[in-house]
């Protein structure tokens, strides 16, 4: 076995185990950390494929930014994991059976017959080829349409997040200096004309 193949299998095994851990871990913080491990291994596999820019981007963006943010959210939310797990054993037989069937069927197709190294040969890469440069060029030429659309998808994400979380509370005691300055005498004092009244028991 070539050294590269060995590294691939090592990374792939750790990745699958880490992914399994994400969905089985009792503690959500452990699940998030396992996801970080899975991302690291995916980045390693990309490095083997000479996609060094994608590998670094995955670590910087997903591991560095997204997952750290996610960890903060998980820690702050205090999710009650036991309630989420209610009915797990109840659904396991049916879900497990369907899952196993699907894995079995998929492995028939996804085995080495159609996706092995013999059927899909890795492309020849000339020396001095820059993956990053190629990616940048393609992104702004052939793929400019989905690239720009993706920015609108992100815009929708921002709008939706603001819409769902920003609340202008009505019961806050905020001061509005401009309203306070604009106040007139008639806003504060109401003069009522009423008949003269005599003091009780006076004279």
């Amino acid at each position: 076995m070539e050294f590269k193949t060995f590294v691939f299998y090592l990374l792939a095994t750790i990745m699958v185990l880490a992914a399994l851990r994400v969905i089985t871990a009792r503690n959500p913080v452990h699940a998030a950390l396992s996801l970080v491990l899975a991302f690291f291994n995916a980045a390693g596999i990309w490095l083997l494929l000479h996609a060094e820019f994608l590998a670094i981007a995955l670590i910087m963006i997903y591991v560095g930014a997204v997952m750290v943010l996610f960890l903060f959210v998980v820690m702050m939310l205090d999710i009650n994991i036991d309630r989420l797990r209610q009915g797990f054993w109840h659904y396991l037989p049916v879900g497990g059976l369907v899952g196993l069937l699907m894995v079995g069927e998929m492995s028939v197709v996804l085995g080495g017959n159609y996706f092995g190294l013999e059927s899909i040969a890795p492309p020849d890469i000339p020396g001095g080829f820059s993956n990053t440069k190629m990616l940048g060029r393609l992104l702004f030429t052939d793929y400019v349409y989905p690239f720009e659309l993706a920015s609108i998808v992100l815009l929708v994400g921002i709008i939706a997040a603001v819409m769902l979380t920003l609340r202008s509370r009505k019961d806050t005691k905020a001061m509005h200096p401009s309203d306070q300055l604009k106040v007139q005498r008639k806003d504060r004092i109401r003069i009522v004309s009423m008949p003269v009244e005599k003091k009780e028991g006076g004279e």
Binding site: I152, V153, V156, G157, A160, M163, L164
Partner: peptide
């Protein structure tokens, strides 16, 4: 599809 779905979820 994602642009449509995300807007609809919100």
């Amino acid at each position: 599809l994602e642009l449509l779905s995300l807007s609809l979820y919100a």
